[in-house]
């Protein structure tokens, strides 16, 4: 514990670095994946291709990706941009499937009712489909958040400052408390992010609490996403989630 107490300042500043590296990929990944997921859902032929590409992107291990990105982007190897871009790629890879599944899970009857009432396609997307996709999108976003926060530390291997520094430095100096404090701080960030997302869901999606269908779809997606989301792992193909008729059961 002595080490921790003597180095609270360091832990805090590394935590801030860690957060600064984790937030942009989560937000960018969400924004970028909306149009891609929409295309995947809207044009059936594109779905397989887009989801395969995003699945393969997610298969690329993180350390090699951080190493290869400078060669592709022309950035310096120590540039934090590499980590942000790399994590954004993972976030998009995870999120595209969530968006496509979430939109597919919107009840066809509701969509038709919206059309029948005279929503234009644009209005229908933003006022009906997107909000109704909310619970599943949020579930996907929670998985992206956890995965991103835990992956940031890999960046420290190529010298980008984050809580991962505590792991490497702790290894070199043989200080177990230092490594442990890094793990605990990472977990805390993940928990705080998750709570913030859940809170955002409560505020933005008040109806989801009342709607058993939405609840079920949400739960299902969280679990499937948990089965699939992993650092450099692949996304499990759960037919129950990719199937709109099932998700509405």
């Amino acid at each position: 514990m002595n080490w921790v107490i003597n180095n609270l300042g360091l832990i805090w500043s590394l935590t801030l670095d860690h957060v600064a590296l984790a937030v942009p990929p989560i937000i960018l990944g969400f924004i970028i994946s909306i149009p891609i997921g929409w295309v995947a859902n809207r044009f059936h032929a594109s779905r397989g291709v887009l989801l395969t590409i995003s699945g393969l992107l997610y298969t690329v291990p993180s350390l090699p990706l951080f190493i290869a990105l400078p060669a592709i982007l022309g950035t310096g190897i120590l540039d934090p941009i590499n980590v942000v871009v790399g994590l954004t790629i993972y976030a998009v890879a995870l999120m595209v499937r969530s968006v496509a599944d979430a939109l597919a899970a919107v009840d066809a009857g509701v969509r038709q009712a919206a059309t029948a009432m005279g929503y234009s396609a644009w209005q229908r997307f933003w006022r009906v489909e997107f909000p109704l996709a909310g619970p599943v999108l949020l579930a996907g976003l929670r998985v992206v958040s956890v995965s991103t926060v835990s992956l940031v530390s890999i960046g420290s291997v190529i010298g980008v400052s984050s809580l991962g520094y505590l792991f490497l430095n702790g290894l070199q100096r043989n200080i177990i408390e230092e490594v442990a404090s890094g793990i605990v701080a990472t977990l805390l960030i993940a928990v705080v992010f998750d709570l913030l997302l859940v809170l955002a869901g409560r505020v933005l999606l008040p109806w989801a609490k009342a709607d058993p269908t939405a609840k079920r779809a949400w739960r299902k997606t969280v679990e499937t996403a948990i089965a699939g989301a992993s650092a450099g792992g692949s996304v499990v193909d759960d037919p129950a989630v990719s199937d709109p008729s099932m998700a509405g059961r």
Partner: peptide, 10 residues
């Protein structure tokens, strides 16, 4: 899932 694997390994 939230555990950073690098930290765990070390």
């Amino acid at each position: 899932r939230a555990l950073p694997s690098l930290g765990l390994l070390i």
